[in-house]
Measured scan of single mutants.
Amino acid sequence: MTSCHIAEEHIQKVAIFGGTHGNELTGVFLVKHWLENGAEIQRTGLEVKPFITNPRAVKKCTRYIDCDLNRIFDLENLGKKMSEDLPYEVRRAQEINHLFGPKDSEDSYDIIFDLHNTTSNMGCTLILEDSRNNFLIQMFHYIKTSLAPLPCYVYLIEHPSLKYATTRSIAKYPVGIEVGPQPQGVLRADILDQMRKMIKHALDFIHHFNEGKEFPPCAIEVYKIIEKVDYPRDENGEIAAIIHPNLQDQDWKPLHPGDPMFLTLDGKTIPLGGDCTVYPVFVNEAAYYEKKEAFAKTTKLTLNAKSIRCCLH
């Protein structure tokens, strides 16, 4: 018999989150649709729960009410004593943790798909938090293969000092899905179709896995975050240069030392320094102006996964 890495157990509980950011409308629209008619997301033997994560922000069509829901799922915020004085999103995070967690427990949901849009030209993107997770690498390989020839990129946010504390991190297997470009507060049919297909293929993978299909060893190309880059700023902290036209919409493309990065209003080009080629992502993302992030630098690498098969009882 072929030796293989056996994944822990079959997958039982899956959640699909929309509206973690209330103005990213593809996930909101799909989740609302699936709450009314969820036939397309159901798979035999699998509990799939669509869920609106930040209903107040969705109602106002804004990213958040008090603070970013997708950055506060750490033990400090989840452990705060519940009171009306807490920011709305912290209270909501505790409610979500109660419903789908608790985080880092045996009772937490197996998989959470968190649906997002970006204003950046990132196409279909899967966000991975753990480079050693054979199950998710296999799932992402399946999704990428199923979507081809449509490109699907994998963004690895594993980093020693950049801690995200994402909404989906309460699950055993957290999956971020990011599709763009799409303006905030807008629905685009092409973007919706791409996100819908990503979810379909992900659920198909889980179904095949649960039925005992063995997935042979595989490898995927990923883009691992190195650092986030702020806009150049003046002495008052105001933005002093904008994304250069040569960099705009060039997510995932190589940016070499000396290539144009920013452009000042008086026409001066600010190039990339250093001696390493990087791959920019979230270029000129609207939501990241407040976070002082013009783009993120990534490096390209390959992740390998062992063969996996479900432990059938």
Rank of each mutant, 00 (worst) to 15 (best):
L78G: 12
L86V: 09
D68R: 07
T166M: 07
T2F: 08
D107F: 15
N70M: 14
M82L: 11
A241H: 04
N97M: 11
H33Y: 09
E89S: 05
D107I: 14
R168Y: 12
P151W: 03
T167N: 06
Y109N: 04
T119R: 02
Y155V: 11
E293N: 09
F140G: 04
C276M: 13
H141K: 06
K197T: 15
H159L: 11
I177G: 02
G274V: 03
A93I: 13
D249G: 08
V186H: 03
K224D: 05
M82H: 13
P87R: 13
T26L: 03
L147F: 05
H10C: 11
C218D: 00
L187C: 05
K13P: 02
I206E: 00
D190G: 06
P245Y: 04
M195P: 01
N304A: 11
E9K: 10
K292A: 14
E89G: 06
N54I: 04
F73Y: 11
L75S: 14
R233G: 04
A296Q: 12
S120A: 12
K32D: 09
P181I: 00
L272S: 07
S146D: 01
F209C: 04
C4H: 08
E211M: 14
A219K: 15
P160N: 09
L203R: 01
E129M: 07
L255Q: 05
C67T: 11
I226A: 07
T26W: 01
I226L: 14
E221R: 03
P232H: 03
T167V: 09
G38E: 13
D266E: 11
R56W: 14
P87N: 09
T302G: 03
G273V: 10
D114H: 07
G273H: 07
E285T: 09
E158G: 11
Y164H: 12
L75P: 11
G18V: 03
P257C: 05
D104T: 10
F51Y: 15
E178K: 08
Y223F: 10
I11K: 14
C152E: 01
E106K: 11
E8S: 13
D66E: 10
A241M: 05
I127F: 12
T26C: 12
P183R: 02
G19W: 03
E293R: 09
D190P: 03
I191W: 02
S120M: 01
D110K: 05
S146I: 05
